[in-house]
Computed example of a mutant assay.
Amino acid sequence: MSERPALTKGYVAKCSRCQHTLYKAKVANEKKILALALSALLLAVPAFSFSLVSVHLLGVTEQTSLLQGALLLIGFAPIVALVVIFCAVVAPALLAACMCFSSACVVLNKRPPLLNPVLKLTSVLIHWSMLEVYIVSFMVALFKLSSYADIYYDSGLFFLVALLILNMSMICEYSNAYYWSFLTNE
C-alpha cells in the first residue's frame, strides 16, 4: 500500500497517471453530520408517506405519495418500481441511519464491531441515494401533466425537498477517510 501524503485543508490528492481524485483533505464535522442525519430520519417519514401532489382531472381529484406511486408502478413495471423504491426511499433512509450511527460513534468516542460494516455500507449508499434524480423526473412529469390537469402541491412535496437538501448536505459534509481513520484509531 502506498503511503498517504498529508494534505492541508482544501487540497486534493490525485493519481498522477489518470488524474482521478484519490482523497480530499477534509475534516468532517461529526456533530453537524449527526444533526443533519437525525433531521433527515425525522423528515423521511412524512416525505415518503404524505401526499406529494393532488391532480384534478375531469372532476376527479387524486392524491398520491412517493410510496403509493412506486407501489402502483409494480403492476406495470416491477423492475422500475423496485429501482425507484430502492433509490428514492430505501437508500436515502438507510444512508441517513448509517451516517447517524457512525457520527454518534465518533461523537461518543465508541468503536462497536458494527461500525466497520456500517462504514462500508455508507460508502456504497452514497452512490445509490438518488433523491435529486427522482425529484427532477417527478417535476418533468408534473410539467407535462400540467397542460391536461390542475396540479396542487401537497405537504409531502415540501418534506421531500427538505429531505433532499438535508441528504445533499450530509453527503457534502461526510468524509469517508475521516471516519475510517477514526475506526482504525489513527
Rank of each mutant, 00 (worst) to 15 (best):
residue 175 S to L: 01
residue 80 V to A: 07
residue 102 S to R: 05
residue 149 A to Y: 05
residue 11 Y to T: 13
residue 69 G to P: 14
residue 96 A to T: 01
residue 165 I to H: 08
residue 109 N to H: 12
residue 29 N to I: 02
residue 67 L to G: 07
residue 102 S to A: 15
residue 25 A to W: 03
residue 2 S to K: 14
residue 66 L to A: 01
residue 47 A to L: 05
residue 161 V to I: 10
residue 163 L to C: 01
residue 10 G to R: 06
residue 74 I to P: 05
residue 137 S to N: 15
residue 128 W to I: 00
residue 41 L to M: 07
residue 1 M to N: 12
residue 63 Q to I: 02
residue 116 N to L: 04
residue 128 W to Q: 13
residue 67 L to H: 02
residue 132 E to T: 00
residue 58 L to S: 14
residue 144 K to L: 09
residue 186 E to K: 15
residue 182 F to R: 00
residue 109 N to C: 11
residue 47 A to F: 09
residue 137 S to R: 12
residue 63 Q to D: 10
residue 84 V to R: 05
residue 117 P to I: 01
residue 175 S to C: 07
residue 20 H to M: 10
residue 35 A to G: 10
residue 114 L to Y: 05
residue 74 I to S: 10
residue 107 V to R: 08
residue 88 A to F: 04
residue 100 C to L: 06
residue 101 F to Q: 11
residue 183 L to M: 05
residue 107 V to T: 11
residue 103 S to E: 03
residue 128 W to F: 15
residue 147 S to K: 11
residue 74 I to M: 07
residue 34 L to Q: 10
residue 95 L to P: 00
residue 2 S to Y: 10
residue 66 L to W: 04
residue 157 L to F: 15
residue 55 V to H: 00
residue 157 L to K: 07
residue 132 E to M: 01
residue 46 P to G: 03
residue 155 S to D: 06
residue 10 G to S: 06
residue 9 K to N: 09
residue 89 V to D: 02
residue 23 Y to E: 07
residue 33 I to Y: 05
residue 110 K to R: 12
residue 164 L to S: 15
residue 104 A to V: 00
residue 72 L to S: 13
residue 62 E to T: 05
residue 110 K to M: 12
residue 128 W to T: 04
residue 96 A to I: 05
residue 165 I to D: 08
residue 4 R to W: 14
residue 24 K to F: 08
residue 181 S to H: 14
residue 98 C to V: 00
residue 152 Y to R: 11
residue 24 K to L: 07
residue 139 M to G: 00
residue 82 L to Q: 11
